[in-house]
């Protein structure tokens, strides 16, 4: 116990650095995947058959394979097969590779949620807009979008909470996020070795952060409760 108190400041500082990396990956993924997902949705719902076919194949591949393998492929594939490591070896390169893999993966999941959201808005809404002389884009933005958003918030919340925890997968390409930072004290780092508690303590960070997100997303959901 005394030992733990002695180690606490060092460990927390190191975990903070790792958690910052976790947060960076989380927000980068969200900012990239939310709009990219919409583009993929339009691709898969396109009436131009080859486009929707290819988009659906890509979504199938991305959703049908583990994110861990996608990370390995995104990071190592350019160097292994093309002979040209495009990401660079340092921390920044690893972060970019991880962010791209995460954005791509999550955009595919988001796109399916969006598609469900768009399709769940009754056809009558579009028809009512049409007979009132609205354009397709007016109908999308003024009539359907908010109804869509309302419907996709619960499944999106699920994915977003999952994303918080999925960021830990990035350590497979040696991105030093919080679990990596916690594990370092098991092997030995900064004069502390064989310390088991830092690894478990990372759970507290995840718990607090996903707690905050749950509250915020819950509020958003409530805000749209005024209509049905």
């Amino acid at each position: 116990m005394e030992l733990m108190l002695e180690q606490f400041p060092i460990v927390v500082q190191s975990l903070n650095v790792g958690f910052l990396q976790t947060l960076k990956l989380f927000f980068a993924t969200l900012i990239g995947a939310v709009p990219l997902g919409l583009i993929i949705t339009f691709g898969s719902m396109s009436r131009f058959k080859p486009l929707s076919f290819i988009t659906k194949i890509i979504v199938w591949i991305v959703r049908g394979t583990p994110l861990m393998i996608q990370l390995l492929i995104f990071y190592y594939f350019p160097g292994l097969v093309l002979g040209k490591p495009i990401w660079g070896s340092g921390e920044t390169g690893r972060f970019f590779a991880a962010a791209v893999a995460f954005i791509f993966n999550y955009a595919c999941y988001f796109s399916e949620i969006y598609r469900g959201g768009i399709q769940s808005v009754p056809v009558g809404q579009e028809e009512a807009g049409l007979v009132l002389g609205m354009t397709k884009s007016q109908i999308f933005f003024k009539v359907k979008l908010l109804q869509m958003v309302k419907r996709i918030i619960p499944p999106m919340s699920n994915e977003i909470i999952t994303l918080v925890k999925d960021t830990s997968l990035a350590r497979i390409i040696a991105l030093q996020e919080i679990i990596w930072a916690g594990q370092a004290f098991l092997k030995g780092s900064q004069g502390i070795s064989g310390a088991i508690w830092p690894l478990f303590f990372t759970g507290v960070y995840y718990l607090i952060f996903s707690g905050i997100l749950t509250v915020l997303l819950g509020r958003l959901e409530k805000k749209l409760d005024y209509f049905r």
């Binding site: 009558g124 009512a128 807009g129 007979v131 003024k142 009539v143 309302k150 005024y226 049905r228």
Partner: peptide, 26 residues
Amino acid sequence: RLHFGLVFQSFNLFPQYTALQNVMLA
């Protein structure tokens, strides 16, 4: 289309707008 108006069997009001906003929007 504006030569015609159509009232649907299932109303198809826009749920996120008030009665007044529904009438005004278009």
